[in-house]
Design a protein around this nucleic acid. Sequence first.
DNA 1: TTGGCAATCTGTAACGTTTCAGTATATTGA
DNA 2: TCAATATACTGAAACGTTACAGATTGCCAA
Lengths: 350, 350
Amino acid sequence: MDRRHTEKNEEASAQERPTLKTLAFMTGLGVTTVSRALKDAPEIGAETRRRVQLVAKQIGYRPNRAGVRLRTGKTNVISLVLNTDREIMSFVSDIIYGVSEVIADTPYHLIVTPYSRSQDPLDPIRYLVETGSADGVIISRTQPNDARARYMLEHGIPFATHGRTDMGLVHPYHDFDNHAFAVEAVRRLASMGRRKLALLTPPVGLTYYGHTVNGFADALSEVGASEIPFSTVSIDHSIEQIRTRTAQLMRRDIRPDGFVSSAAAATLALVAGIEDAGLKLGHDVDIVSKQSSDLLHLFRPELLIVNENFRLAGSELARSVLGWIGGAAPGSLQSLSVPGEVLAYQRADD
Amino acid sequence: MDRRHTEKNEEASAQERPTLKTLAFMTGLGVTTVSRALKDAPEIGAETRRRVQLVAKQIGYRPNRAGVRLRTGKTNVISLVLNTDREIMSFVSDIIYGVSEVIADTPYHLIVTPYSRSQDPLDPIRYLVETGSADGVIISRTQPNDARARYMLEHGIPFATHGRTDMGLVHPYHDFDNHAFAVEAVRRLASMGRRKLALLTPPVGLTYYGHTVNGFADALSEVGASEIPFSTVSIDHSIEQIRTRTAQLMRRDIRPDGFVSSAAAATLALVAGIEDAGLKLGHDVDIVSKQSSDLLHLFRPELLIVNENFRLAGSELARSVLGWIGGAAPGSLQSLSVPGEVLAYQRADD
DNA sequence: TTGGCAATCTGTAACGTTTCAGTATATTGA
DNA sequence: TCAATATACTGAAACGTTACAGATTGCCAA
């Protein structure tokens, strides 16, 4: 089955994939010249360059990734690092699609590097860095003091975080303005006369937990509403847990008349818990919820909804990483999307 | 910044990533011997083998992927080919997680190869085959006569399909038994006294469209119920379209009193359309729906639900591809998950 | 004693690419 | 005219790995 005894490349019939050697033979040039002609090196004659590129296009030459990678260390790979048991569903596919959109016209491939509950989140990052498996990395579930970001900064590998850090270190990120979300949500509830508000928070420990909580608190004092503590669960908890805790909360004497929820799936559980307690959405209580896929309004029309675009996040993150790889200043590759309108902070390369 | 003038590898201080040459120097053996010792070749002495493997473990040697790939052509990559605009959300992440689980203990990386509406679905497959970018491929949205499967079979690259084909060609697949699903769904509705049933179908053209439609028809005649045609939309249509069409259908004189729905998101739209027409779920009409994430029962407790486990699908698909790569017979790498057996058929009301 | 053979180990070449250090030819300045 | 220089090209080496074709040693049978 292995009939590669075809007297070297130059006499091979036709079927093998063309290499620089093939091109060199066809054009009568040396491989060095061909290699340079293809990347528009200055010391190659204009006509030669055109000729080589024409032939390359004609026979469908594509550089061998392994060859390039071995020689130069460039992998042409972006790695998306995902928590396999915690990341919310639709989340992931949207981010992947967003990233894909951006790298579609580049030589980059997207590899998904998973890690599970049982592992140190730093493990997959170490692996990528130590084995040089990617030119750039995208991480999510970012923390204020994020060991992964610090590690990658120390090791000089370009990356972007979904969510900001707070370590005094500068790196590319994309984030949704959860402070603004919480503020708007509280204002909206207040404008409907709701005065006792509860917050279903993001996972404790992630940076946007703080943003959300602060926005919530800021807006509470602004509108003069009060908080009903609801810190026994976060959107990371199971549907059942959220539902149960919500029902318990709603059966108390002092219960919220308004909720702010940081995730769509959690909102489903929230509503279920409320109704378990015999209360009615839109009457006894209102909810402002974030969502990423456009389905929540079908669930209960009374829900007040703010959209977060994860596909955009994926695109921005990919653009940032590619920008950093391309030599742009990391500080110029940060963006924030604001609920309602998407406001991208400047790009460096203009 | 490039100080690799360190007199070859053997005298390098410590920091560069270890290679076979490093190991050879440390053990006093030749690189060939080291290479063979690491892969348990028979012509290496037992003690030498142990010694080499010990040292390799100690210094954390990991084979350079580019080196292996260049020399052998083995990429250690599995590619998951996804339609960027059509694949349902949770779908994708679950499959990715399932695949990840399986390849976690292998040297394989998972790369996601997207293609969009505008492209020929064969494009990404051609790319993968022509550039030799993967050792194995996983595709979804499988059709009865699937050009991609045929192409990969012709080109001898191992793959697995999510869903079966019907071309008389044998290849690995994993599929959910949608015929059985439709049959059970109809029986269930019939047992509740429903007699005029409609089917919200999978995308026309995909293999499981046929399976579902056939199961539906078979069961209809079995239980003596009649079909109300509802072929203007499929689960590939937008939420709005499904909702509108459903409302139209439900306002007719002759309208269904039972639905079978092939996807959770579509079911949301279905229910919305039904309620738009002023009818009540569980009273005027019942619905049996598939779901992959466990959320539908929160939406309406009256919904009758069948779970499809996409994480399992991902695992099975990965196992199949790895099996084929490993030399197993493609015909032995086919699996079907049956609703009710592998998966729980849950009653919402108990 | 010698030839044969099994058991271990080794050097070289090759995969496709880029970089380094050239070479050959034409062009320029004096 | 000669040397200096710019222009256009080239071979060899190297990245890390594996496969091929030996090489060395010790042991045994004849």
